[in-house]
Design a protein around this nucleic acid. Structure first.
Length: 214
DNA sequence: CATAGGATCGCCT
DNA sequence: GGCGATCCTATGT
């Protein structure tokens, strides 16, 4: 565990500024995975706004990273959005059941992405409960990438959405991330290995998973 | 065209 | 800790 650096734009009120393209275009996906912690991930799907504070992420470092779908330059219709500029959604179907939501980062041509693995629910709790078919948010964290996407209404058909704009029409699907971040002195980030990537050999040992602890 | 497998989850023992 | 669900995607012929 290590302490996070205080954010440069610390203020008393959490910022609702949507993270701009420049945030996502930066080159270090491992740093960015840590910087997404504490941000507010928001969606408006079928007119319902839901959101949660990002508490767990995993970095996937493109063609060099055997755990990545883009490893060794693999480029397919599914993964095409990762090869574009950062700030777009990469969502794919896992095990035939779960949609997993990723944030694409880096410049065009460098297929980096960050998987969102857990959130602390904030806006639209009732909608999220309905989607999860639960009666309460026991323990209050929504953990597991499949559950995060499910709670926020994100489906693999939303892959490719621009994360830097809110949807204009009320029924237009939208995903965006707000600056928000208000780190407290006691907040800590744990760095550990990624989940479910045993097939990746030595890359499975990389400390590319980040967990924000209160 | 056929096939194998997956960045998971929840329920079971 | 084990296992089944469930179907798109990638790969190979």
């Amino acid at each position: 565990m290590k302490c996070l650096e205080p954010h440069a734009e610390t203020s008393l009120e959490p910022s609702k500024r949507i993270l701009p393209r420049s945030f996502y275009l930066r080159p270090d996906v491992v740093t960015l995975a840590q910087e997404l912690l504490g941000r507010r991930l928001c969606t408006r799907i079928n007119g319902n706004v839901t959101s949660g504070i990002i508490t767990e992420t995993e970095a996937y470092a493109g063609i060099e990273d055997k755990a990545s779908h883009a490893w060794n330059g693999r480029r397919t219709e599914r993964t095409e959005v990762m090869f574009g500029p950062g700030g777009f959604a990469y969502v794919y179907l896992c095990y035939g059941i779960h949609s997993l939501f990723n944030v694409v980062t880096n410049r065009k041509g460098v297929p980096h992405a960050i998987l969102i693995r857990a959130i602390m629910p904030s806006t639209g709790r009732f909608t999220m409960l309905e989607r999860l078919k639960k009666n309460n948010l026991s323990g209050k964290m929504i953990s597991g990438p499949g559950n995060v996407a499910k709670a926020l209404g994100i489906h693999y058909s939303h892959s490719g959405l621009d994360l830097t704009i809110k949807p204009s029409g009320i029924h237009e699907a939208g995903i965006w991330i707000e600056d928000h971040r208000t780190m407290k002195p006691g907040d800590r980030v744990e760095a550990t290995t990624r989940v479910g990537v045993g097939y990746a050999g030595k890359d499975a040992l990389l400390p590319y998973r980040f967990i924000l602890h209160p």
